[in-house]
Design a binder for these strands. Structure first.
Length: 563
RNA sequence: CGGGGCGUAGCGUAGCCCGGUUCAUCGCGCCUGCUUUGGGAGCAGGAGGUCGUAGGUUCGAAUCCUACCGCCCCGACCA
Protein backbone atom coordinates (compact mmCIF):
# COMPACT_ATOMS: atom_id res chain seq x y z
CA UNK A 1 0.00 0.00 0.00
CA UNK A 2 1.28 3.42 -0.91
CA UNK A 3 1.24 5.88 1.93
CA UNK A 4 0.90 8.77 -0.53
CA UNK A 5 -2.51 7.47 -1.59
CA UNK A 6 -3.66 6.07 1.74
CA UNK A 7 -5.75 7.45 4.56
CA UNK A 8 -3.41 7.13 7.50
CA UNK A 9 -3.84 10.40 9.37
CA UNK A 10 -1.00 10.29 11.89
CA UNK A 11 -0.78 12.84 14.64
CA UNK A 12 2.52 14.23 15.83
CA UNK A 13 1.06 15.51 19.06
CA UNK A 14 -0.85 13.73 21.79
CA UNK A 15 -4.57 14.43 21.53
CA UNK A 16 -5.97 16.12 24.59
CA UNK A 17 -8.57 13.48 25.39
CA UNK A 18 -6.35 10.43 25.32
CA UNK A 19 -4.73 9.25 28.52
CA UNK A 20 -3.86 5.56 28.29
CA UNK A 21 -1.08 4.44 25.93
CA UNK A 22 -3.21 2.28 23.69
CA UNK A 23 -5.70 5.09 23.15
CA UNK A 24 -2.95 7.63 22.46
CA UNK A 25 -1.20 5.42 19.93
CA UNK A 26 -4.31 4.18 18.18
CA UNK A 27 -5.27 7.81 17.61
CA UNK A 28 -1.78 8.98 16.74
CA UNK A 29 -1.15 6.10 14.35
CA UNK A 30 -4.33 6.94 12.46
CA UNK A 31 -6.05 3.68 13.36
CA UNK A 32 -9.16 4.99 15.09
CA UNK A 33 -11.18 8.19 15.44
CA UNK A 34 -13.87 8.94 17.98
CA UNK A 35 -17.37 9.62 16.75
CA UNK A 36 -18.93 10.12 20.17
CA UNK A 37 -18.02 9.07 23.71
CA UNK A 38 -17.34 5.33 23.64
CA UNK A 39 -18.06 5.08 19.91
CA UNK A 40 -15.10 4.72 17.59
CA UNK A 41 -14.56 4.38 13.88
CA UNK A 42 -11.80 2.07 12.79
CA UNK A 43 -9.77 3.57 9.96
CA UNK A 44 -8.12 1.31 7.39
CA UNK A 45 -4.92 0.65 9.34
CA UNK A 46 -6.75 -0.11 12.57
CA UNK A 47 -9.31 -2.25 10.82
CA UNK A 48 -6.53 -4.36 9.33
CA UNK A 49 -5.44 -5.26 12.84
CA UNK A 50 -9.01 -6.02 13.90
CA UNK A 51 -9.32 -8.36 10.92
CA UNK A 52 -6.10 -10.14 11.83
CA UNK A 53 -7.22 -10.67 15.42
CA UNK A 54 -10.61 -11.85 14.22
CA UNK A 55 -8.93 -14.31 11.91
CA UNK A 56 -6.88 -15.82 14.71
CA UNK A 57 -10.01 -16.14 16.83
CA UNK A 58 -11.89 -17.67 13.92
CA UNK A 59 -9.18 -20.26 13.30
CA UNK A 60 -9.07 -21.31 16.94
CA UNK A 61 -12.85 -21.42 17.24
CA UNK A 62 -13.13 -23.48 14.08
CA UNK A 63 -10.45 -25.79 15.45
CA UNK A 64 -12.68 -26.76 18.40
CA UNK A 65 -15.65 -27.33 16.12
CA UNK A 66 -17.17 -23.88 16.34
CA UNK A 67 -19.56 -22.79 13.61
CA UNK A 68 -19.67 -19.13 12.75
CA UNK A 69 -22.97 -17.24 12.66
CA UNK A 70 -23.82 -13.69 11.82
CA UNK A 71 -26.64 -12.50 14.04
CA UNK A 72 -28.70 -9.30 14.02
CA UNK A 73 -27.75 -6.48 16.35
CA UNK A 74 -31.33 -5.28 16.22
CA UNK A 75 -33.52 -7.59 18.30
CA UNK A 76 -37.23 -7.72 19.12
CA UNK A 77 -37.65 -6.79 22.74
CA UNK A 78 -40.05 -9.64 23.46
CA UNK A 79 -37.31 -12.26 23.08
CA UNK A 80 -35.38 -10.54 25.83
CA UNK A 81 -38.47 -10.43 27.97
CA UNK A 82 -38.64 -14.24 27.89
CA UNK A 83 -35.56 -14.33 30.12
CA UNK A 84 -36.38 -11.18 32.06
CA UNK A 85 -33.21 -9.55 30.91
CA UNK A 86 -34.77 -6.29 29.76
CA UNK A 87 -35.14 -5.57 33.47
CA UNK A 88 -31.84 -7.21 34.35
CA UNK A 89 -29.91 -4.96 31.98
CA UNK A 90 -31.92 -1.90 32.86
CA UNK A 91 -30.38 1.30 31.61
CA UNK A 92 -27.40 -0.56 30.15
CA UNK A 93 -29.58 -1.78 27.30
CA UNK A 94 -30.25 0.52 24.36
CA UNK A 95 -33.91 0.76 23.35
CA UNK A 96 -35.15 1.77 19.94
CA UNK A 97 -37.66 4.61 20.21
CA UNK A 98 -39.98 4.03 17.30
CA UNK A 99 -40.29 0.26 17.36
CA UNK A 100 -40.22 -2.48 20.01
CA UNK A 101 -36.60 -3.30 19.34
CA UNK A 102 -33.48 -3.22 21.42
CA UNK A 103 -29.83 -3.17 20.42
CA UNK A 104 -28.29 -6.47 21.47
CA UNK A 105 -25.80 -6.21 24.34
CA UNK A 106 -24.94 -9.94 23.96
CA UNK A 107 -26.60 -12.87 22.23
CA UNK A 108 -27.61 -15.67 24.61
CA UNK A 109 -31.29 -15.17 23.81
CA UNK A 110 -30.83 -15.12 20.05
CA UNK A 111 -28.65 -18.22 19.97
CA UNK A 112 -31.09 -20.00 22.28
CA UNK A 113 -33.92 -18.88 20.00
CA UNK A 114 -32.22 -20.65 17.10
CA UNK A 115 -31.47 -23.72 19.18
CA UNK A 116 -34.95 -24.30 20.52
CA UNK A 117 -37.18 -26.59 18.51
CA UNK A 118 -34.20 -27.38 16.28
CA UNK A 119 -31.71 -29.04 18.59
CA UNK A 120 -34.33 -31.57 19.72
CA UNK A 121 -32.38 -34.75 20.30
CA UNK A 122 -29.31 -35.67 22.28
CA UNK A 123 -28.06 -36.81 18.87
CA UNK A 124 -27.99 -33.15 17.77
CA UNK A 125 -25.60 -32.27 20.58
CA UNK A 126 -23.01 -31.04 21.27
CA UNK A 127 -22.90 -27.81 19.28
CA UNK A 128 -20.60 -24.79 19.49
CA UNK A 129 -21.92 -21.67 17.79
CA UNK A 130 -20.07 -18.40 17.63
CA UNK A 131 -20.01 -15.03 15.99
CA UNK A 132 -17.82 -11.96 15.86
CA UNK A 133 -20.22 -9.10 16.08
CA UNK A 134 -20.90 -5.61 17.34
CA UNK A 135 -22.56 -5.32 20.75
CA UNK A 136 -24.27 -2.30 22.17
CA UNK A 137 -24.25 -1.32 25.82
CA UNK A 138 -25.29 2.03 27.18
CA UNK A 139 -22.29 2.37 29.46
CA UNK A 140 -22.71 5.13 31.99
CA UNK A 141 -19.11 6.01 31.61
CA UNK A 142 -17.13 4.94 28.56
CA UNK A 143 -13.39 5.22 29.12
CA UNK A 144 -9.84 4.48 28.05
CA UNK A 145 -10.55 4.73 24.34
CA UNK A 146 -11.62 1.46 22.89
CA UNK A 147 -11.28 -0.46 26.16
CA UNK A 148 -14.75 0.40 27.39
CA UNK A 149 -17.11 1.56 24.67
CA UNK A 150 -20.83 1.83 24.08
CA UNK A 151 -20.38 -0.16 20.90
CA UNK A 152 -17.75 -2.83 20.62
CA UNK A 153 -16.76 -5.96 18.76
CA UNK A 154 -17.09 -9.18 20.63
CA UNK A 155 -16.48 -12.77 19.76
CA UNK A 156 -19.18 -14.64 21.59
CA UNK A 157 -19.75 -18.34 21.47
CA UNK A 158 -22.34 -20.62 22.99
CA UNK A 159 -22.16 -24.31 23.66
CA UNK A 160 -25.14 -26.65 23.77
CA UNK A 161 -24.72 -29.94 25.58
CA UNK A 162 -26.80 -32.82 26.87
CA UNK A 163 -24.96 -33.46 30.12
CA UNK A 164 -22.85 -31.63 32.67
CA UNK A 165 -19.87 -33.76 31.65
CA UNK A 166 -20.30 -32.70 28.03
CA UNK A 167 -20.51 -29.08 29.14
CA UNK A 168 -17.22 -29.54 30.99
CA UNK A 169 -15.72 -30.68 27.70
CA UNK A 170 -17.06 -27.71 25.75
CA UNK A 171 -15.82 -25.45 28.50
CA UNK A 172 -12.31 -26.84 28.52
CA UNK A 173 -12.18 -26.73 24.73
CA UNK A 174 -12.85 -23.01 25.00
CA UNK A 175 -10.31 -22.65 27.77
CA UNK A 176 -7.69 -24.18 25.50
CA UNK A 177 -8.78 -22.18 22.46
CA UNK A 178 -8.60 -18.95 24.46
CA UNK A 179 -5.10 -19.73 25.63
CA UNK A 180 -4.09 -20.41 22.02
CA UNK A 181 -5.64 -17.16 20.85
CA UNK A 182 -3.97 -14.98 23.46
CA UNK A 183 -0.67 -16.80 23.07
CA UNK A 184 -0.75 -16.29 19.32
CA UNK A 185 -1.45 -12.60 19.86
CA UNK A 186 1.62 -12.45 22.11
CA UNK A 187 -0.29 -11.18 25.12
CA UNK A 188 0.91 -11.68 28.65
CA UNK A 189 -2.25 -12.69 30.45
CA UNK A 190 -3.42 -14.66 33.45
CA UNK A 191 -6.57 -16.50 34.36
CA UNK A 192 -8.86 -15.64 37.25
CA UNK A 193 -11.53 -17.88 38.63
CA UNK A 194 -14.46 -15.53 39.13
CA UNK A 195 -17.88 -15.53 40.69
CA UNK A 196 -20.39 -15.88 37.92
CA UNK A 197 -22.54 -12.87 38.78
CA UNK A 198 -25.67 -11.96 36.90
CA UNK A 199 -25.04 -14.27 33.96
CA UNK A 200 -26.06 -17.14 36.20
CA UNK A 201 -24.27 -20.43 36.23
CA UNK A 202 -21.80 -22.52 38.09
CA UNK A 203 -18.28 -21.99 36.81
CA UNK A 204 -16.33 -19.30 35.06
CA UNK A 205 -12.88 -17.98 34.30
CA UNK A 206 -11.72 -14.55 33.29
CA UNK A 207 -8.72 -13.99 31.04
CA UNK A 208 -7.04 -10.84 32.28
CA UNK A 209 -4.18 -8.55 31.36
CA UNK A 210 -2.40 -6.41 33.92
CA UNK A 211 -2.88 -2.74 33.12
CA UNK A 212 -3.38 0.56 34.88
CA UNK A 213 -6.22 1.14 32.46
CA UNK A 214 -7.99 -1.90 33.88
CA UNK A 215 -11.27 -1.79 35.73
CA UNK A 216 -10.92 -4.88 37.84
CA UNK A 217 -8.64 -5.26 40.81
CA UNK A 218 -7.03 -8.65 41.20
CA UNK A 219 -4.62 -10.38 43.52
CA UNK A 220 -2.03 -12.39 41.67
CA UNK A 221 0.84 -14.66 42.62
CA UNK A 222 3.53 -14.84 39.96
CA UNK A 223 4.95 -17.95 41.52
CA UNK A 224 1.98 -20.32 41.55
CA UNK A 225 -0.34 -18.27 39.25
CA UNK A 226 -2.96 -17.95 41.98
CA UNK A 227 -5.22 -15.18 40.72
CA UNK A 228 -8.47 -13.91 42.13
CA UNK A 229 -10.61 -10.86 41.92
CA UNK A 230 -9.92 -8.81 45.00
CA UNK A 231 -13.59 -9.18 45.89
CA UNK A 232 -12.98 -12.83 46.71
CA UNK A 233 -9.19 -13.01 47.07
CA UNK A 234 -7.68 -14.40 50.23
CA UNK A 235 -4.24 -14.26 51.74
CA UNK A 236 -2.41 -16.19 54.39
CA UNK A 237 -2.40 -13.52 57.04
CA UNK A 238 -2.08 -14.74 60.58
CA UNK A 239 -4.73 -14.08 63.22
CA UNK A 240 -3.80 -12.10 66.29
CA UNK A 241 -2.18 -14.23 68.95
CA UNK A 242 -4.18 -14.54 72.13
CA UNK A 243 -2.20 -13.44 75.14
CA UNK A 244 -2.14 -15.63 78.19
CA UNK A 245 -3.87 -13.08 80.36
CA UNK A 246 -6.77 -10.85 79.52
CA UNK A 247 -6.55 -7.46 81.17
CA UNK A 248 -9.44 -5.71 82.81
CA UNK A 249 -11.66 -3.51 80.68
CA UNK A 250 -10.70 0.12 81.04
CA UNK A 251 -12.31 3.23 79.62
CA UNK A 252 -9.81 5.68 78.17
CA UNK A 253 -10.46 9.33 77.39
CA UNK A 254 -9.38 9.88 73.80
CA UNK A 255 -10.41 13.41 72.85
CA UNK A 256 -10.51 13.98 69.07
CA UNK A 257 -9.09 10.56 68.30
CA UNK A 258 -11.04 9.19 65.34
CA UNK A 259 -8.92 7.01 63.08
CA UNK A 260 -7.00 3.87 63.92
CA UNK A 261 -3.76 5.70 63.12
CA UNK A 262 -4.63 8.45 65.58
CA UNK A 263 -5.56 5.91 68.23
CA UNK A 264 -2.28 4.02 67.79
CA UNK A 265 -0.29 7.25 67.99
CA UNK A 266 -2.23 8.42 71.04
CA UNK A 267 -1.92 5.18 73.00
CA UNK A 268 1.44 4.12 71.50
CA UNK A 269 0.07 0.72 70.47
CA UNK A 270 0.27 -1.36 67.30
CA UNK A 271 -2.66 -1.23 64.89
CA UNK A 272 -3.12 -5.00 65.21
CA UNK A 273 -4.29 -4.36 68.79
CA UNK A 274 -7.17 -2.29 67.49
CA UNK A 275 -10.59 -3.51 66.47
CA UNK A 276 -11.97 -1.13 63.87
CA UNK A 277 -15.76 -0.81 63.82
CA UNK A 278 -17.98 -0.44 60.80
CA UNK A 279 -21.75 -0.31 60.98
CA UNK A 280 -23.72 -1.79 58.09
CA UNK A 281 -27.43 -2.01 57.42
CA UNK A 282 -28.66 -5.42 56.33
CA UNK A 283 -32.39 -5.78 55.64
CA UNK A 284 -32.96 -2.53 57.59
CA UNK A 285 -31.23 -3.98 60.65
CA UNK A 286 -27.92 -2.50 61.79
CA UNK A 287 -24.98 -4.78 62.51
CA UNK A 288 -21.41 -4.20 63.58
CA UNK A 289 -18.39 -5.37 61.63
CA UNK A 290 -15.06 -5.53 63.43
CA UNK A 291 -11.82 -5.50 61.47
CA UNK A 292 -8.26 -5.74 62.70
CA UNK A 293 -6.39 -2.44 62.59
CA UNK A 294 -6.65 -0.71 59.25
CA UNK A 295 -8.00 -3.70 57.33
CA UNK A 296 -10.74 -2.74 54.92
CA UNK A 297 -14.13 -4.43 54.87
CA UNK A 298 -14.66 -6.43 51.70
CA UNK A 299 -18.33 -5.78 51.07
CA UNK A 300 -18.62 -8.59 48.55
CA UNK A 301 -17.43 -11.09 51.13
CA UNK A 302 -19.74 -9.55 53.72
CA UNK A 303 -22.74 -9.82 51.41
CA UNK A 304 -21.91 -13.42 50.74
CA UNK A 305 -21.82 -14.17 54.46
CA UNK A 306 -25.07 -12.38 55.21
CA UNK A 307 -26.98 -13.05 52.03
CA UNK A 308 -28.78 -10.16 50.36
CA UNK A 309 -27.80 -6.54 50.07
CA UNK A 310 -25.95 -4.45 52.58
CA UNK A 311 -25.09 -0.81 52.80
CA UNK A 312 -22.82 1.17 55.11
CA UNK A 313 -24.81 3.10 57.71
CA UNK A 314 -25.04 6.82 57.04
CA UNK A 315 -23.00 9.00 59.36
CA UNK A 316 -26.20 10.58 60.72
CA UNK A 317 -27.59 7.17 61.67
CA UNK A 318 -24.63 6.13 63.78
CA UNK A 319 -25.40 8.03 66.93
CA UNK A 320 -28.86 6.58 67.18
CA UNK A 321 -27.62 3.04 66.51
CA UNK A 322 -24.55 3.03 68.73
CA UNK A 323 -24.67 6.09 70.94
CA UNK A 324 -21.56 7.53 69.37
CA UNK A 325 -20.32 9.04 66.12
CA UNK A 326 -17.85 7.43 63.73
CA UNK A 327 -14.49 7.07 65.43
CA UNK A 328 -15.80 6.07 68.83
CA UNK A 329 -17.84 2.98 67.98
CA UNK A 330 -17.08 -0.45 69.41
CA UNK A 331 -18.48 -3.86 70.28
CA UNK A 332 -19.23 -3.32 73.97
CA UNK A 333 -22.92 -2.84 74.51
CA UNK A 334 -23.67 -2.99 70.79
CA UNK A 335 -27.22 -4.24 70.28
CA UNK A 336 -27.31 -6.50 67.26
CA UNK A 337 -25.16 -8.96 65.39
CA UNK A 338 -21.42 -8.58 65.63
CA UNK A 339 -19.57 -9.90 62.60
CA UNK A 340 -15.83 -10.19 63.10
CA UNK A 341 -12.95 -10.77 60.74
CA UNK A 342 -11.01 -13.99 61.30
CA UNK A 343 -7.89 -12.04 62.21
CA UNK A 344 -9.57 -11.05 65.47
CA UNK A 345 -10.72 -14.55 66.36
CA UNK A 346 -10.25 -15.24 70.08
CA UNK A 347 -8.15 -12.09 70.36
CA UNK A 348 -7.84 -10.31 73.66
CA UNK A 349 -6.41 -7.08 75.07
CA UNK A 350 -7.90 -5.15 72.15
CA UNK A 351 -8.74 -1.48 71.91
CA UNK A 352 -11.92 -0.27 70.32
CA UNK A 353 -14.49 2.52 70.52
CA UNK A 354 -16.56 2.91 73.68
CA UNK A 355 -19.83 3.86 71.94
CA UNK A 356 -19.41 7.15 73.70
CA UNK A 357 -17.85 10.08 71.88
CA UNK A 358 -14.17 10.73 72.69
CA UNK A 359 -13.75 7.49 74.63
CA UNK A 360 -12.20 4.14 73.76
CA UNK A 361 -12.10 0.90 75.68
CA UNK A 362 -8.95 -1.14 76.28
CA UNK A 363 -8.56 -4.73 77.40
CA UNK A 364 -11.32 -6.13 75.23
CA UNK A 365 -11.42 -9.92 75.06
CA UNK A 366 -13.49 -11.08 72.10
CA UNK A 367 -14.46 -14.28 73.90
CA UNK A 368 -15.31 -12.60 77.21
CA UNK A 369 -16.67 -9.19 76.21
CA UNK A 370 -18.27 -9.36 72.78
CA UNK A 371 -21.84 -10.50 72.43
CA UNK A 372 -21.82 -13.71 70.35
CA UNK A 373 -19.22 -12.66 67.77
CA UNK A 374 -19.47 -14.44 64.40
CA UNK A 375 -16.16 -14.94 62.59
CA UNK A 376 -15.58 -14.84 58.85
CA UNK A 377 -12.92 -13.85 56.33
CA UNK A 378 -13.94 -10.28 55.56
CA UNK A 379 -10.71 -8.55 54.56
CA UNK A 380 -9.59 -6.96 51.34
CA UNK A 381 -6.17 -8.47 50.67
CA UNK A 382 -3.21 -6.17 50.13
CA UNK A 383 -0.05 -6.34 48.03
CA UNK A 384 2.81 -8.07 49.78
CA UNK A 385 0.67 -10.48 51.80
CA UNK A 386 1.29 -14.16 51.48
CA UNK A 387 -0.31 -16.16 48.70
CA UNK A 388 -2.88 -18.63 50.05
CA UNK A 389 -1.46 -21.43 47.88
CA UNK A 390 2.28 -20.98 48.27
CA UNK A 391 4.56 -18.89 50.43
CA UNK A 392 5.26 -16.14 47.94
CA UNK A 393 3.98 -12.62 47.93
CA UNK A 394 0.71 -11.61 46.37
CA UNK A 395 0.56 -8.60 44.14
CA UNK A 396 -2.65 -6.57 43.94
CA UNK A 397 -3.14 -4.57 40.75
CA UNK A 398 -5.73 -3.53 38.21
CA UNK A 399 -6.38 -5.50 35.09
CA UNK A 400 -8.38 -5.54 31.90
CA UNK A 401 -10.77 -8.38 31.24
CA UNK A 402 -10.06 -9.75 27.77
CA UNK A 403 -12.22 -12.81 27.80
CA UNK A 404 -14.64 -14.64 29.99
CA UNK A 405 -15.85 -18.22 29.86
CA UNK A 406 -18.96 -19.36 31.70
CA UNK A 407 -20.84 -22.50 32.42
CA UNK A 408 -24.36 -21.16 32.07
CA UNK A 409 -26.26 -24.32 32.82
CA UNK A 410 -29.94 -24.18 31.92
CA UNK A 411 -30.83 -20.62 32.82
CA UNK A 412 -31.63 -19.58 29.25
CA UNK A 413 -32.77 -22.90 27.86
CA UNK A 414 -35.25 -23.31 30.72
CA UNK A 415 -36.58 -19.79 30.43
CA UNK A 416 -36.97 -20.07 26.67
CA UNK A 417 -38.06 -23.68 26.44
CA UNK A 418 -35.02 -24.98 24.56
CA UNK A 419 -35.38 -28.66 25.39
CA UNK A 420 -34.08 -31.90 23.93
CA UNK A 421 -35.01 -35.55 24.34
CA UNK A 422 -32.39 -37.71 26.02
CA UNK A 423 -31.72 -41.39 25.32
CA UNK A 424 -34.60 -42.45 27.55
CA UNK A 425 -36.98 -40.13 25.73
CA UNK A 426 -37.16 -37.68 28.59
CA UNK A 427 -37.28 -33.97 27.88
CA UNK A 428 -34.50 -31.83 29.40
CA UNK A 429 -33.34 -28.26 28.98
CA UNK A 430 -30.14 -27.97 26.94
CA UNK A 431 -27.09 -27.30 29.08
CA UNK A 432 -25.35 -24.18 27.84
CA UNK A 433 -22.10 -22.34 28.11
CA UNK A 434 -21.22 -18.83 26.97
CA UNK A 435 -17.80 -17.51 26.09
CA UNK A 436 -16.71 -13.99 25.13
CA UNK A 437 -13.66 -12.13 23.89
CA UNK A 438 -13.43 -8.35 23.48
CA UNK A 439 -11.78 -8.02 20.10
CA UNK A 440 -10.79 -4.34 20.40
CA UNK A 441 -9.53 -5.05 23.89
CA UNK A 442 -7.13 -7.60 22.45
CA UNK A 443 -5.78 -4.88 20.19
CA UNK A 444 -5.62 -2.28 22.98
CA UNK A 445 -3.96 -4.70 25.39
CA UNK A 446 -1.41 -5.65 22.77
CA UNK A 447 -0.48 -2.00 22.37
CA UNK A 448 -0.44 -1.49 26.14
CA UNK A 449 2.13 -4.27 26.32
CA UNK A 450 4.07 -3.52 23.15
CA UNK A 451 4.98 0.13 22.77
CA UNK A 452 7.80 2.50 23.57
CA UNK A 453 8.12 6.28 23.68
CA UNK A 454 8.16 6.47 19.89
CA UNK A 455 5.10 4.41 19.11
CA UNK A 456 3.70 0.96 18.67
CA UNK A 457 5.93 -2.10 18.34
CA UNK A 458 4.08 -4.71 16.30
CA UNK A 459 5.35 -8.14 15.75
CA UNK A 460 4.38 -9.74 12.50
CA UNK A 461 1.34 -11.65 13.79
CA UNK A 462 -0.83 -8.58 14.34
CA UNK A 463 1.08 -5.91 12.39
CA UNK A 464 -1.05 -4.16 9.76
CA UNK A 465 1.94 -4.51 7.41
CA UNK A 466 5.07 -6.62 7.70
CA UNK A 467 7.37 -3.98 6.29
CA UNK A 468 7.42 -0.24 6.06
CA UNK A 469 9.44 0.68 2.99
CA UNK A 470 10.82 4.19 3.33
CA UNK A 471 12.01 6.08 0.31
CA UNK A 472 14.03 8.94 1.74
CA UNK A 473 13.88 11.16 -1.29
CA UNK A 474 11.18 10.77 -3.88
CA UNK A 475 12.67 13.57 -5.95
CA UNK A 476 15.80 11.64 -6.86
CA UNK A 477 15.09 9.38 -9.82
CA UNK A 478 17.54 6.69 -8.72
CA UNK A 479 15.99 6.52 -5.24
CA UNK A 480 12.51 6.37 -6.73
CA UNK A 481 13.51 3.64 -9.14
CA UNK A 482 15.22 1.53 -6.50
CA UNK A 483 12.37 1.81 -3.99
CA UNK A 484 9.73 1.14 -6.65
CA UNK A 485 11.61 -1.99 -7.64
CA UNK A 486 11.88 -3.14 -4.06
CA UNK A 487 8.21 -2.42 -3.48
CA UNK A 488 7.21 -4.45 -6.52
CA UNK A 489 9.47 -7.33 -5.61
CA UNK A 490 8.32 -7.54 -2.01
CA UNK A 491 4.69 -7.29 -3.04
CA UNK A 492 5.15 -9.90 -5.74
CA UNK A 493 6.47 -12.21 -3.05
CA UNK A 494 3.27 -11.84 -1.11
CA UNK A 495 4.70 -9.59 1.57
CA UNK A 496 2.44 -6.90 2.95
CA UNK A 497 4.33 -3.64 2.50
CA UNK A 498 3.47 -0.10 3.49
CA UNK A 499 5.43 2.06 1.07
CA UNK A 500 6.22 5.57 2.26
CA UNK A 501 6.43 7.15 -1.16
CA UNK A 502 5.38 10.62 -0.09
CA UNK A 503 7.16 13.19 -2.20
CA UNK A 504 7.38 16.15 0.12
CA UNK A 505 8.00 14.48 3.47
CA UNK A 506 11.48 14.84 4.91
CA UNK A 507 13.56 11.86 5.95
CA UNK A 508 13.21 12.52 9.67
CA UNK A 509 9.47 12.97 9.33
CA UNK A 510 9.19 9.58 7.64
CA UNK A 511 11.36 7.89 10.27
CA UNK A 512 9.18 9.27 13.04
CA UNK A 513 6.02 8.13 11.31
CA UNK A 514 7.48 4.67 10.72
CA UNK A 515 8.41 4.30 14.39
CA UNK A 516 4.96 5.52 15.40
CA UNK A 517 3.14 3.05 13.13
CA UNK A 518 5.53 0.37 14.35
CA UNK A 519 5.76 -2.21 11.56
CA UNK A 520 8.22 -4.95 12.57
CA UNK A 521 10.77 -4.07 9.89
CA UNK A 522 11.70 -0.92 8.06
CA UNK A 523 13.50 -0.99 4.73
CA UNK A 524 15.17 2.37 4.19
CA UNK A 525 16.22 3.44 0.72
CA UNK A 526 18.53 6.46 0.60
CA UNK A 527 20.79 8.08 -1.93
CA UNK A 528 24.10 7.49 -0.17
CA UNK A 529 23.80 3.78 0.46
CA UNK A 530 22.24 3.22 -2.91
CA UNK A 531 25.58 4.20 -4.46
CA UNK A 532 27.00 1.00 -2.96
CA UNK A 533 23.90 -0.89 -4.03
CA UNK A 534 22.77 -1.15 -0.40
CA UNK A 535 19.65 -0.41 1.62
CA UNK A 536 19.24 -0.24 5.37
CA UNK A 537 17.05 -2.49 7.52
CA UNK A 538 15.77 -1.38 10.87
CA UNK A 539 14.21 -3.79 13.33
CA UNK A 540 11.57 -1.81 15.15
CA UNK A 541 11.59 -3.86 18.32
CA UNK A 542 15.32 -3.73 19.04
CA UNK A 543 16.15 -0.56 17.13
CA UNK A 544 18.95 -2.54 15.48
CA UNK A 545 19.99 -1.37 11.99
CA UNK A 546 22.17 -2.90 9.35
CA UNK A 547 22.88 -2.62 5.64
CA UNK A 548 22.02 -5.19 3.05
CA UNK A 549 23.02 -5.58 -0.55
CA UNK A 550 19.91 -5.03 -2.66
CA UNK A 551 20.43 -8.35 -4.41
CA UNK A 552 20.29 -10.14 -1.07
CA UNK A 553 17.34 -8.17 0.25
CA UNK A 554 14.58 -10.58 -0.66
CA UNK A 555 16.18 -13.66 0.85
CA UNK A 556 17.11 -11.80 4.02
CA UNK A 557 13.64 -10.34 4.41
CA UNK A 558 12.16 -13.79 4.16
CA UNK A 559 14.50 -14.99 6.90
CA UNK A 560 13.60 -12.03 9.09
CA UNK A 561 9.89 -12.58 8.66
CA UNK A 562 10.23 -16.20 9.66
CA UNK A 563 12.27 -15.49 12.78
C1' C B 1 -25.71 9.02 38.32
C1' G B 2 -22.28 11.92 42.15
C1' G B 3 -17.42 14.79 42.36
C1' G B 4 -13.62 17.45 39.54
C1' G B 5 -11.69 19.53 34.97
C1' C B 6 -12.11 21.23 30.11
C1' G B 7 -14.47 23.28 25.32
C1' U B 8 -10.65 29.23 21.12
C1' A B 9 -8.84 26.77 12.92
C1' G B 10 -7.58 19.61 11.42
C1' C B 11 -4.17 18.92 16.13
C1' G B 12 -1.81 21.27 20.33
C1' U B 13 -2.30 26.12 22.67
C1' A B 14 -2.17 32.01 24.48
C1' G B 15 -5.72 35.47 25.85
C1' C B 16 -10.41 34.71 30.47
C1' C B 17 -8.93 36.36 37.32
C1' C B 18 -8.27 42.79 36.05
C1' G B 19 -14.57 43.15 30.01
C1' G B 20 -12.57 48.03 25.44
C1' U B 21 -7.00 49.65 19.00
C1' U B 22 -6.92 41.54 19.84
C1' C B 23 -13.69 40.13 16.33
C1' A B 24 -8.24 36.68 18.44
C1' U B 25 -1.88 34.51 20.02
C1' C B 26 1.72 31.01 18.91
C1' G B 27 3.50 26.06 17.14
C1' C B 28 2.33 21.90 13.98
C1' G B 29 -0.50 20.64 9.78
C1' C B 30 -2.83 22.60 4.92
C1' C B 31 -2.28 25.59 -0.19
C1' U B 32 1.40 28.32 -3.90
C1' G B 33 6.53 29.24 -5.33
C1' C B 34 11.81 28.66 -4.81
C1' U B 35 15.60 26.16 -2.16
C1' U B 36 16.51 21.70 0.78
C1' U B 37 16.45 15.99 1.53
C1' G B 38 19.59 9.92 6.51
C1' G B 39 16.01 11.42 12.41
C1' G B 40 9.91 16.20 13.03
C1' A B 41 13.58 21.51 6.67
C1' G B 42 14.30 27.07 5.26
C1' C B 43 12.46 31.49 3.08
C1' A B 44 8.38 34.23 0.88
C1' G B 45 3.28 34.48 0.13
C1' G B 46 -1.70 32.40 1.36
C1' A B 47 -6.37 29.77 3.06
C1' G B 48 -8.87 28.39 7.36
C1' G B 49 -12.37 30.60 13.51
C1' U B 50 -20.63 31.87 14.33
C1' C B 51 -14.06 31.77 20.57
C1' G B 52 -19.27 24.54 22.23
C1' U B 53 -24.81 26.34 21.94
C1' A B 54 -28.71 29.59 23.64
C1' G B 55 -30.06 33.39 26.66
C1' G B 56 -28.64 37.42 30.02
C1' U B 57 -25.60 41.71 32.20
C1' U B 58 -23.17 45.92 29.63
C1' C B 59 -22.38 51.52 25.50
C1' G B 60 -19.18 47.13 24.54
C1' A B 61 -18.40 39.88 26.02
C1' A B 62 -13.67 34.73 24.00
C1' U B 63 -13.44 37.27 28.88
C1' C B 64 -18.81 38.26 33.78
C1' C B 65 -23.83 35.49 34.95
C1' U B 66 -27.56 31.44 33.86
C1' A B 67 -29.11 27.15 31.34
C1' C B 68 -28.08 23.45 28.00
C1' C B 69 -24.74 20.36 24.94
C1' G B 70 -20.14 17.82 24.33
C1' C B 71 -15.45 15.60 25.96
C1' C B 72 -11.84 13.84 29.73
C1' C B 73 -10.56 12.13 34.75
C1' C B 74 -12.05 10.01 39.78
C1' G B 75 -16.07 7.41 41.99
C1' A B 76 -20.77 4.49 41.71
C1' C B 77 -22.35 0.77 38.21
C1' C B 78 -20.67 -3.31 35.09
C1' A B 79 -23.32 -9.86 31.98
Amino acid sequence: MRLSKSFVPTLKEVPNDAVVASHVYMLRAGMIRMLSAGIYSFLPLGYKVIKKISQIIREEMDAIGGQEFHLPGLNPREIWEETNRVDAFGDTMFHIKNREYILAPTHEEIMTFHARNVLKSYKDLPQIWYQIQTKFRNEARPRSGVIRGRQFLMKDSYSFDATAEELDKSYSLHDKAYRNIFDRCDLKYFVVGASSGAMGGTGSEEFMVKSDAGEDTVAYCEHCTYAANVEVAQSKILPNKRSEFSSELKEISTPNVKSIDELCAFLKIDESQCAKSRVYIHDDIPLLVLMCGNDEVNETKLEKVLGGKIRPAHLEELKEITGADAGSIGPLGFKGRIIVDNRLKDANNLYSGANKNDYHIGGIDMNRDANKPEYFDLRIVKSGEECPNCNNKLEVFSAIELGHIFKLGTKYSSAMGANFLDESGKENPIIMGSYGIGVERVMACYIEQHHDENGIVWDSVLAPFQIQLISLNMKKPEVVEASENIYNELTANGIDVLFDDRIDAQAGFKFKDADLLGMPFQVIVGEKKLKDNKVEIKIRKSGERFDLDINELMSNIKKLLKS
